[in-house]
Nucleic acid binder design. Structure first.
Length: 423
RNA sequence: GGAGACGUCGCAUAGUCCGGUCUAGUGCGCCACCCUGCUAAGGUGGUAACGGGGCAACCCGUUCGAGGGUUCGAAUCCCUCCGUCUCCGCCA
């Protein structure tokens, strides 16, 4: 939810943001109309209600003679109050529904759609496998050779896009996630293991129930949603609270399973564990002041790059175009690692600045020096996911099917330096 | 799953049986000021969020776990739901 005052004072700014996203700019004007209707009907209701309350007091103190006449009047007034209230409630609901449709106001993201990102920087050097004299295998072939990834049995038991991580595969994931938690701890984040089932209002509050709601698993019997990221649970953590940011941002590192339906991605990344229905992730989540949000966004990006350096992957950072932003994000940076088998980049991390959008929807506020309350900003960013295994196996593979363990990860694998294929 | 108790403005609690004087009282905490040579103590006042109108002091409305209902009027009566606690059952 965006700031209503911004929409009133600078409607053109919001219209332009909607255009950049490829969304309807006229929604802004429909909201302004709905706001006017809401306010006039609210004034009518409140006036009638005030009258009703004061007459109620007269009834209480009236003598037995006066009472019948007063009661007749108040009875009639009660009808009017009820009607006015129904109008006001309806106008309020219409207004809320429209306001919730407006996506966050874009801040600095390049215009365009999915392919219109800007490459911020490229880091590290992709290996030249031709010069090394062998064809790089894909992560699944390597993983199967190591007895680390089993997609066949995953499909047998749970269906397509499910998998088992076995032996070194399981250890590799734990190592990565533990390294991510350590990275977060060093940076002052509080590690949190979150719920992965959340209520509708929390899912809606984070902005995931809009256009892409078919991406989300819903348990109808219990009306609960399976989270696609611990961001959801961490955003809900301080919902309906007034938090204290006077000592700096509140920073959490969520560890959770993540569930995604992957609707509409049929036939895409079907091989291996690149695009799966369930995976694990360590996710950073910060609550900051509005003023500090952009700087915090850079801090989260820096931590993501620290993790990528730890596992020694070549990658690039992209500034996502406005049309490819989630509805909550004002700006988003992705880190994409090089994928030798496919000669392309693969998204490993994503960090979004949601400014006050989620905080307004979830009612997370802070108290300013003057004693007033105002919405905080929220940001999130990936520190490690199961998918990282893909890039690690492929980039550190050797001609004989073994994989060199990146130095930064060795302490998390008991000093193991190389992963050897099993016969 | 069954039975019971409870949910009030930061915390604690009064009010609910018997609807109107509740504009929700009190204590603690917190803030400001006053007093006492320091400390401690004491005194006075203030102390929720959200929304609407002036856009400043102020006025009005909503909110007593949530949502419905009864009533001229609901913290108070009725219904449904949620949560917490205690006991029982079941599972681990």
């Amino acid at each position: 939810m965006i700031d209503l005052n911004l929409l009133r004072d600078e409607p053109e700014l919001v219209r332009e943001s909607q255009r950049l996203r490829g969304e309807d700019p006229e929604l802004v004007d429909r909201i302004i109309d709905a706001d006017a209707r809401r306010r006039s009907s609210l004034a009518a209701f409140e006036g009638a209600r005030a009258e009703q309350k004061s007459m109620g007091k007269q009834v209480a103190t009236a003598s037995a003679d006066e009472r019948p006449a007063l009661l007749a009047k108040t009875k009639e007034l009660a009808e009017r109050v009820k009607a006015f209230q129904a109008d006001a409630t309806q106008a309020g609901n219409e207004f809320d529904e429209l306001l919730r449709q407006i996506q966050n106001v874009v801040e600095g993201a390049p215009p365009g759609g999915e392919d219109d990102y800007i490459v911020v920087r490229e880091v590290g050097q992709a290996r030249d496998f031709t010069a090394e004299g062998f064809q790089p295998a894909d992560h699944l072939a390597i993983g199967e050779g190591l007895r680390a990834i089993d997609t066949a049995r995953g499909a047998k038991v749970s269906g397509s896009r499910f998998y088992y991580l076995t032996g070194i595969g399981a250890r590799l994931e734990l190592a990565l996630l533990n390294a991510a938690v350590d990275c977060a701890l060093r940076a002052g984040f509080t590690p949190v293991i979150t719920p992965t089932l959340v209520k509708p209002e929390v899912m809606a509050g984070t902005g995931f129930l809009g256009r892409h709601s078919d991406e989300i698993y819903h348990l109808g019997t219990d009306d609960l949603y399976l989270v696609g990221t611990s961001e959801v649970a961490l955003a809900g953590y301080h919902s309906d609270e007034i938090i204290d940011l006077s000592d700096g941002p509140l920073r959490y590192a969520g560890w959770s399973a993540c569930y995604r339906r992957e609707a509409g991605s049929h036939g895409k990344d079907v091989r291996g564990i690149i695009r799966v229905h369930q995976f694990h992730k360590v996710e950073m989540f910060s609550y900051t002041t509005v003023e500090d949000a952009a700087a915090e966004h850079q801090r989260l990006l820096a931590l993501e790059e620290e993790m990528l350096a730890l596992v020694d992957l070549p990658y690039r950072v992209i500034d996502t175009a406005a049309g490819d932003l989630g509805s909550s994000a004002a700006r988003k940076f992705d880190c994409e690692a090089w994928l030798p088998s496919q000669q392309r980049y693969l998204e490993l991390t994503s960090t979004s600045n949601c400014t006050t959008y989620q905080a307004r929807r979830l009612s997370v506020r802070e108290r300013t020096e003057s004693g007033a309350t105002r919405a905080v900003a929220t940001l999130n960013g990936t520190l490690a996911t199961t998918r990282w295994i893909v890039a690690i196996l492929e980039n550190h593979q050797q001609a004989d099917g073994s994989v060199t363990v990146p130095e930064g990860l060795r302490p998390y694998l008991g000093g193991l330096e190389v992963l050897i294929p099993k016969a």
